[in-house]
Design a protein around this nucleic acid. Structure first.
Lengths: 360, 360
DNA sequence: CTGAAAGCGCTTACAG
DNA sequence: CTGAAAGCGCTTACAG
């Protein structure tokens, strides 16, 4: 028995409840519990639970009494208690390297829309491309009984993801793959890149430079391979001097492009592996006194909303980012509901080359 | 007593545990609990808890035994159970109208960085500018015992937010305010707008058009007022024909600007209340055959990373979005930790007018 | 159809 | 310094 000192009396709508207080937060002392609803409706907590879940039949008259009490007390069940009992939380986590990078909000939106429709909550985690932050998050979320994970991060060493999957958590990768060991939704970056470069070659370009991101990131690696393969197939020699390595929106990139032009490397096209890179390149080209596309054609990657607004409008590759998010979330939720591990499936969605005015 | 049928035996590292199985998910049957750690270390669960919390002294020798067992079993406490017991979850929710709008990822990043440092988890919710989705989220998150809310949404009827606050949840608004009733972190949109328009007037512009968003959104309302006030102070008549109402990145806006030029309204400057609007305006101006800034100056709002890359680089107003997120999260977490409602404080952060080449 | 009981995993007041 | 007990709010197997 709890002693009187540690009890408090709560009166809600004329019904008196005794509640142990002990050391809980004040804020929650006025939380309406299932017991209170039961008392008010004159039934047992079990019956309230059954009425609300709808899974087990309840007499119509009882049902009405319960629902009336629920409404009058503004009762909503405590998800923590429910989750503790049921061993699931209806929550999924989306791990992204950097939410400020345009690609991820679109994916996040797709994931979120599906999550909401299925009454799942989304936890968004930003790793700052830092593996330790990522590990920290996984550790935290395991404790929290997140039901599953979607990873959009792209570090090469990914044992932690395999381990997570092996320990029983449903995992879906997005925008990247990890062999055929983990479910994934991605695009064929090799092919997208290949197609774009082939298009440049077919339209008469011969000295095609590439602005690429870090080769440690799998998508950039694949795009680079696609670039080289297209050159090879079309019988154009790969030249190292035409490769610029520039990390996203980075002041260094502008001067790298500018200095490439100054050194007389004279490319007739630049294939940039992201739109911001392409836009920076266009600026450097213009500032150097050359014209896009008259002297140099430029192709981007991602079809950001801004890319149709720059001058000239950017030819670029569009990825179905929102759809990737949607499909990944659907897969994950199915896995969670099935409660068993199936053979992983890798879904590859198509990309489009969107031809605008930055190529001739 | 649970009958044998409903029990299962688990052996971990040579120690045997009996676990009631009943109807829990298979996946969690191999979860390591505090009881298992206690058994392995040869102490009581209380002692394990005390060792890990560190709040209550434990004998050094006991401590070592416990930590060894924790490590060997790879134990991590169940946050749901902890949250249920303690009445808090160390989780905050950020509600944004649209994560795909550039402004919000920056804020989200700020919130998240602070949350992570304080060992809070962030739940991100996207309302699609739909009040019903917002209400749905609030309802869901209350159940989940989220410890507090940050709202970046901007609908005018906001009784639900006041109600949430009154029912005891810490709430901070961001980018908007709700009188002085709720804590908020925002910028002075009126002043930012006033300053920009005044700058245009001082530099010789007389027919200044404005491209504004919906007046239902408080920030656009304030920016519009700032525009009118600057005109008035400088003795320039406000003209309705110079007002364009265009919802963000919307194909309609381009033709609205174009047709304004065609109708001979001839503004000498356009103040756009967001960068995308400004960039669309610049495109319409160019396509019409006029030059920016020679014929028409253009000013944007938000200083998106892209705005320095367009041609000409865009003069715009920069808001400290990341800092807004940081400050809001700090305020919220302080409120949560203090466990009591103080007088609300509205923090107004400064904006900067960044002058580039789109204005003369 | 319904209630009393047990238990999810944890933490602290209580009593040594 | 430590263990046994109680309880957070919920849900379902069990027994009527």
């Amino acid at each position: 028995m709890t002693s009187i000192v540690n009890c408090c009396i709560i009166e809600i709508n004329g019904i008196v409840f005794r509640k142990s207080r002990l050391w809980r937060l004040e804020r929650f002392d006025n939380m309406v519990t299932i017991k209170m609803v039961a008392k008010k409706a004159g039934v047992s907590p079990s019956t309230v639970s059954r009425t609300l879940s709808g899974k087990i039949p309840v007499a119509e008259s009882t049902r009405e009494k319960v629902l009336k009490a629920v409404k009058e007390l503004d009762y909503y069940p405590n998800t923590l208690a429910k989750g503790l009992k049921e061993g699931k939380t209806n929550t999924i986590a989306l791990i992204v390297p950097n939410i400020q990078n345009r690609v991820f909000p679109d994916i996040a939106k797709g994931v979120e829309d599906v999550a909401r429709k299925n009454e799942f909550t989304l936890i968004l985690c930003n790793t700052d491309e830092n593996i330790n932050v990522e590990l920290e998050y996984i550790d935290k979320l395991k404790k929290r009984w997140v039901d599953g994970f979607i990873f959009a991060t792209a570090v090469p060493e990914s044992n932690h993801i395999l381990k997570l999957k092996q320990s029983g958590f449903p995992v879906v990768l997005v925008v990247r793959t990890l062999g055929d060991k983990v479910d994934a939704v991605a695009v064929d970056n090799f092919k997208a890149s290949f197609d774009a470069v082939q298009y440049l070659i077919k339209t008469g370009h011969k000295r095609i430079a590439i602005i690429n991101g870090s080769l440690d990131v799998s998508v950039y690696n694949q795009r680079f391979e696609g670039y080289k393969a297209a050159l090879e197939q079309e019988g154009i020699e790969f030249r190292n001097e035409l490769v610029i390595q520039g990390d996203n929106i980075d002041n260094g990139l502008y001067s790298m492009v500018y200095s490439m032009l100054k050194r007389g490397i004279n490319p007739d096209a630049i294939f940039a592996t992201s739109d911001p890179k392409a836009i920076i390149a266009m600026k450097a080209i213009k500032d150097f006194g050359l014209k896009v596309p008259d002297h140099i054609s430029v192709v981007g990657f991602d079809n950001m909303d801004i890319s149709m607004l720059v001058d000239p409008p950017l030819t670029t590759i569009s990825q179905p980012l929102y759809e990737i998010g949607v499909l990944a979330a659907k897969k994950l939720i199915t896995m969670i509901k099935n409660k068993k591990q199936e053979e992983p499936i890798i879904d590859i969605l198509p990309t489009d080359l969107i031809i605008r005015k930055s190529t001739k």
